[in-house]
Design a protein around this nucleic acid. Structure first.
Lengths: 103, 103
DNA sequence: TCCTATGCATCGGATTGCGAGGTATAGGTG
DNA sequence: CACCTATACCTCGCAATCCGATGCATAGGA
């Protein structure tokens, strides 16, 4: 199950404190949401490439456990975008929640 | 601005208490969200047709102010789906909110 | 008479996500 | 050693969702 449109924001959030590589970014999103959010690889990698193209994240080669990995780091622009996207998420989710009510 | 995937649920909610026609359903969503949610006609009508195809709403001809209008009424299946979709919305939005944090 | 709001509808295009498939390595098990 | 699983990256085609543009028509006010 997933929430359309939130993946870029979730990726930026994942990179706020330290760089990471794609596979683990997705794993952590799944763990932190207790399995509710589960973005697939066919979604994840294109999303990372797009964020890089937009200059919101940067990548570099890294090595972990003897194997090369592609690490991503958030840029200054990425942080700005994250702040903006999070505010937008709150506005939208609040609006929907109000309408859907408590029932 | 809009929230992808929420429109069918918002439409079902709009019809919970009384039938209504498409144009006004969209207007009320916009009003109730204070303009935050604003689904366009190119989105609205296909969504209504799809819900009808799936048997979640039914339509009938009505007249208001001397003009014919297409009214929609929620079905029993539609109510069930609404309850399920609302629960799913809550689960997903909570998951995202927890990750995006307070900042 | 003309303009605007209402009301319904379709079409093409963009975006987003998924499933399936491909490639490769590290580490554990038989 | 052979095999399997998890890890790690990637692409492709497909489906779903939404938007902008466009078309059609009527009611009511300027």
């Amino acid at each position: 199950m997933n929430f359309k449109g939130t993946l870029p924001t979730l990726i930026l959030e994942a990179l706020l404190h330290e760089p990471d590589h794609g596979y683990r970014i997705a794993q952590r999103i799944k763990e932190r949401s207790k399995g509710v959010l589960d973005f697939k690889e066919g979604t994840l990698y294109p999303a990372l490439h797009k964020l890089e193209n937009e200059g919101l994240i940067e990548s570099y080669e890294g090595v972990e456990k003897g194997r090369p990995r592609r690490y991503y780091r958030i840029t200054r622009d990425g942080r700005k975008t994250f702040t903006k996207d999070r505010a937008e998420w709150r506005e939208l989710s609040r609006a929907v929640t109000v309408i859907l009510g408590e029932g």
